[in-house]
Design a protein around this nucleic acid. Structure first.
Lengths: 213, 213
DNA sequence: GTCTATATGTTGATAGAC
DNA sequence: GTCTATCAACATATAGAC
């Protein structure tokens, strides 16, 4: 079954918003990429901003549910003890990385867009607050349970570092490939998973162990 | 002495490009913010893209020289031994953070823009390659010296994580403040410095110690 | 160096035929 | 649902007066 034109618009918008940002991608660019007339975008989504919101909503609705499920599962598995730091960090990262590993380029575009939003103080910040704060809160709570002796502020910073480290890996700027002269592949998400999780866990453990001031 | 109109343009452009991106900031917005006529921008910088390049160049010329000086100093201090991971990570971060700590909002705008560029696959990636690859290379080399037993690929990923963790801290999205209900201040760059460096060093040590595959 | 006036294209969005 | 035609607002850039 061929995809609907509405879906084609969403896919094209997702990719172009990810590549060029909200302002950088015009409705005409999107229409061309989707092989659709410009006015059809207005018909389906009314305004550009609402199209943007639809692009976000389409995936977050699926994504957030799954993310929360992973956390529940990881806490249930550890019960009655608190989950380990590894389990929490892994749960947070894996929901992103497993889809990237699977090679789904639609999801990759979305994660790409996610990175853009998470480093944008304008409209991006609003959307992050609306859609991703629940996940962030949940992760921070779980980290606090896993590291009961860690200073709360350090947990917050630790999550920020985790989030930043993960998100740069989700956008394909080509820098890792270039800097490593081709010996490292920026799209080797399996390797990223294997490397990022222990890196972040060691970092968090360090923060937990040091005397806070 | 009041600043020249040319400098006012650069300052305004720096701020608006940081906030809204290359496409999101128009020359009119910039001219208004700089309290200058639009055509004066064309007079001084010829095109919008060249204005953008000038914004980058103005600070990178200073910044890169200083960054490289820090690395030399830190290697000289450790000689004939290799510098420690702490020294290398600190040198990389501190050049950013010391100016942020000093509260210079022009530099903060620039770092803000830096974060945007480092997560942009388009024009941003080009500029990063041109201006920041030398620093990145230098940092990676220094890390390799500090961690001779670490797998080269892990060093590259470690640097990517470091770079991602630092850069999210340089843009003020308000997320840390929101998520911590005000108990953490996203502009407390001194705290970021104190927290990020040990976090990253522990992560790198972990990568160095694990058996690579 | 700085301004006014203007050229030329692109933008997001609408109205109406089919 | 999908297209054609069109709008007013905005974009970058230029020419020329002072």
């Amino acid at each position: 079954m061929p995809i609907s034109k509405k879906t084609a618009i969403l896919n094209a918008a997702e990719e172009l918003f990810a590549l060029h940002g909200l302002n950088g991608a015009s409705m005409r660019n999107i229409a061309t990429k989707a092989e659709v007339d410009v006015s059809l975008i207005t018909y389906h989504f009314k305004t550009k901003d609402k199209l943007f919101a639809s692009v976000i909503e389409r995936r977050t609705s699926v994504f957030i549910r799954e993310q929360l499920f992973y956390f529940e599962e990881c806490e249930r598995r550890a019960a009655p003890n608190a989950p380990s730091v590894e389990d929490v960090v892994d749960a947070y990262c894996y929901v992103f990385l497993k889809r990237a590993i699977a090679g789904d380029h639609h999801w990759r575009n979305f994660f790409h867009l996610f990175t853009r939003l998470s480093n944008d103080p304008g409209r991006g910040a609003e959307i992050m607050a609306q859609y991703f704060d629940p996940i962030a809160m949940r992760t921070i709570d779980a980290l606090q349970m896993a590291l009961p002796d860690c200073d709360q502020k350090d947990i917050h910073w630790g999550f920020q570092f985790l989030s930043g480290a993960l998100s740069t890996c989700l956008v394909n700027t080509g820098s890792v490939n270039r800097l490593s002269k081709g010996s490292v592949d920026s799209e080797d998400y399996k390797k990223i998973h294997q490397t990022l999780v222990p890196f972040v866990c060691a970092g968090l453990d360090e923060l937990s162990n040091k005397i806070s001031d």
